[in-house]
Design a protein around this nucleic acid. Structure first.
Lengths: 216, 216
DNA sequence: GCCAATTTAGCAGTCCATGCAAAACACCAT
DNA sequence: ATGGTGTTTTGCATGGACTGCTAAATTGGC
């Protein structure tokens, strides 16, 4: 019943098949979404394309949207882990930067699909909404880590100011990837992240010259 | 056909009735939402309570969600106007602060309903998502104004860092209102806004000590 | 009171999503 | 290989948001 988290090893045949079906659904759905648009694609069509019954689709994904964000949980998990296991010398930003870097290396391989996906999300209102929800979750995670670093309460203002700015930086990076190599490579990921970090560290420094954060 | 924007005056009887129906729908819907939850209330029930046909409901609102955010358009319009008409001596933050203040004064009157509404939004996923979308729109507006102030391009990074932090401050203020007067009044609105402003101005100052913003 | 425009209603239909129970399937021990 | 067992898949029925179309009711102006 329990997956021991070791990937690729010792999955029963059953699990393998489930995994294959899941991948097939994702691949089929994405193709259709890109061809006909998200709203222009029905669950029934995805099911047909993936050779399963419509009902089965919902056994794999709770909603049509979930297919588009199929990797979000992993992504969040990896960020959480990276932050939780950061060295004592690392603050939350260092961990964030390292994480983005690692991600960037992976993503470069399949960047054309990634871009198509981001474009799809961008011009499908339902998906943009969901995407912002995902960003909000990341912001929350960062805020918590920053709160630790600063030694203040989880819900106090400063960590949220900081993490909001950091997420804005991440957003800019995503946008940057979308438009990359259409013209010149434009700014590098590091460049943007650096600027964001300078900004929020400067902001924190300014606050430190004031009375400390009161209240939750 | 055209509403000349003068409120309360010279609206034909037809428009008046429409307005009354609209208000009735809002009032009815909100009561039901608060009593049975957003998901636990059907459009059919709202229609029945407001004495209209279900079909007519959709003549007034494009979706069930829209009822909850019925005032969002006005709100955005008022912010846009306030920012557009700010004095030459005012920057975007000054305008924002003035706007929040004005809003705060109004809202104080019906704060109990406001709080109920915010609670509803907070614990209904669909509504939270929509709310974040609204916040994103405000962030966009602010970013544009800040870009003007800074004399940089609309889509460059800094305005977005700044406006993201500002919106985080607004968020904190909203949260603060939600929990207000359950215990002591806690921090004042100004207090939070000030801190946010110190933060982002400190951030900007730090950036100014670096090469200027390259690229869009 | 009548005409023209607008608002409301009714109806049929699409689509997402869910619960439930039967069928198909895979795994295991014998 | 065979039957038992747990899991996955499926079909069927249902509920609910939302839309297009068309007919009816209402309203304002004359």
């Amino acid at each position: 019943m329990y997956d021991r988290g070791v990937p690729g090893v010792s999955l029963g045949l059953r699990e393998r098949k489930k995994q294959r079906t899941r991948d097939l659904i994702i691949r089929t759905a994405m193709e259709l979404f890109l061809a006909r648009g998200f709203d222009g694609t029905t669950v029934a069509e995805i099911a047909e394309g993936a050779d399963i019954s419509p009902r089965t689709f919902f056994g794999y994904f709770a909603s049509k949207e979930d297919v588009v964000f199929h990797d979000h949980d992993e992504l969040v998990a990896s960020l959480v882990e990276r932050i939780r296991e950061r060295a004592a010398s690392e603050d939350a930003f260092d961990a964030l930067r390292a994480w983005v870097h690692a991600l960037d290396a992976e993503a470069a391989l399949e960047s054309s699909q990634q871009r198509a996906r981001r474009r799809l999300i961008r011009d499908t209102p339902a998906l943009s909404a969901r995407d912002r929800g995902n960003a909000a979750r990341i912001e929350e995670i960062l805020a918590e880590a920053v709160a630790q670093d600063l030694g203040v309460a989880r819900h106090s203002l400063r960590p949220h100011l900081v993490s909001a700015a950091a997420v804005a930086g991440l957003d800019a990076i995503a946008r940057l990837r979308d438009t990359a190599d259409e013209d010149q490579p434009s700014r590098s990921v590091d460049d943007v992240l650096d600027e964001a970090l300078v900004f929020l560290q400067g902001g924190l420094a300014a606050l430190r010259r004031l009375p400390p954060d009161r209240e939750a």
